[in-house]
Amino acid sequence: MSTRWYPIYQRGNPQLRVFLPNFWMKLVKNEGKQQSNKVTFHCSMEMTKHDIKNYLEKIYNVPVAEVRTRIAMGRFRKDIGQGYVVKDDDVKFAYVTLPKDMKFEFPNIFEKKKGDSDDDMKSLDEAKKSFKNYIERNKDRSDVPSWFSI
């Protein structure tokens, strides 16, 4: 919507349509053990259950059996160092049930692949290489300080 507010719905009006929704959803891991057709999302605070259902069905083409939502209040904590109280943002959880025959397993994103060298070693190699390059570039002007060149 180029104007981001809903007109009030009066009986008999045409159905409200959103052409450019700015809702966001993010898929998060289930808390604890769950059935394989349950998926947890965080979503925009203003989304209703119907919105969530339509969003998944129309945009992602994922059939949805049921949606439950709750709003979790953000934690109050003391700022480290300053000591004043900070409140984290509230989060809207959406617990979506897929149809019985569908399964979703949260992928293990940071699984190590075989033959993958360690990240630390990689960065160390890169640092070594860049230092070598730097020495190579400044061979003929050893008296110039390091911060001088671009």
């Binding site: 898929l27 992602y60 083409n61 994922v62 994103i109 940071f110 692949k113 990689k122």
Partner: peptide, 17 residues
């Protein structure tokens, strides 16, 4: 593909830095 996996990046980008 329309899937819940669209919420994740492509598989080859998973371990990239």
């Amino acid at each position: 593909h329309y899937d819940l996996m669209e919420f994740f990046d492509e598989k080859k980008n998973w371990n990239e830095t």
